[in-house]
Design a protein around this nucleic acid. Structure first.
Length: 199
DNA sequence: CTGCCGATTTAC
DNA sequence: TAAATCGGCAGA
């Protein structure tokens, strides 16, 4: 497994958000690998986007990570109980990122199932399987992604994204776009078609 | 220090 | 449809 390199993340944020679909988020966790295929993303671009935490150049302890160079992780805590994981994009000083909103687990199922539901994967209902990691908070729970993984360099070996996993097929897919979820407060930005997902 | 709000999820 | 649950942030 070869992590995507730094230059991959220094590009245009919308292009990266689309291109991350079908790639694999890899997390080394207690001697195992938890791996999920990315199925849904959203772009956030501070300069022009009222939904971005760093809109208008806002700097706070939390948003500092968004100004890092592309390829860093941005993990934040939300609604008192969930984490969301982003990939920081563009050059240092530019606040932009891609939120990972959906995964299809391809490795580490048993461990992920314990993390997500406290159950062995054999015990899961159809509904639980369907809802396993199809949301930003859910996938962070399934992969044990917490604030400890904020501002981690995804060009490292323990937590990264790659385009191929040995023994795992890369199915063809079509990309769809839509408005982003859960940002009704963001005025004109709420309609930007910056959500991308595999049909 | 106080009070409101949130890039969500789940239960009712 | 609404509760859960608490850190982040702005304003006093």
């Amino acid at each position: 497994m070869k992590p995507l390199k730094r230059n991959y993340y220094m590009a245009d944020t919308l292009s990266i958000a689309r291109d991350l679909l079908g790639k694999y988020l890899v997390r080394e966790y207690e001697e195992n690998y938890l791996i999920g295929r990315i199925t849904e993303t959203e772009a956030y671009i501070g300069t022009i986007d009222k939904a971005c935490h760093a809109y208008g150049g806002k700097v706070t302890p939390r948003t500092q990570t968004l100004y890092e160079q592309g390829g860093m992780s941005y993990v934040y805590f939300i609604y008192g109980m969930y984490y969301c994981m982003n990939v920081v994009t563009e050059k240092k000083g530019s606040a932009a990122a891609v939120l990972i909103r959906g995964l299809e687990m391809v490795k580490g199922l048993e461990e992920a199932s314990m993390l997500r539901y406290g159950l062995s994967c054999q015990e899961l209902t159809k509904a639980q399987i369907k809802n396993f990691s199809n949301g930003p908070g859910k996938l962070c729970k399934a992969m044990a992604i917490t604030k400890d993984l904020n501002t981690v360099d995804l060009c490292g070996k323990e937590f990264f994204i790659t385009d191929k996993i040995k023994g795992v097929e890369n199915p063809a897919f079509e990309i769809a776009a839509s408005a982003r979820i859960g940002i009704d407060y963001a005025e004109e930005a709420k309609d930007f078609p910056w959500r991308f997902y595999i049909k």
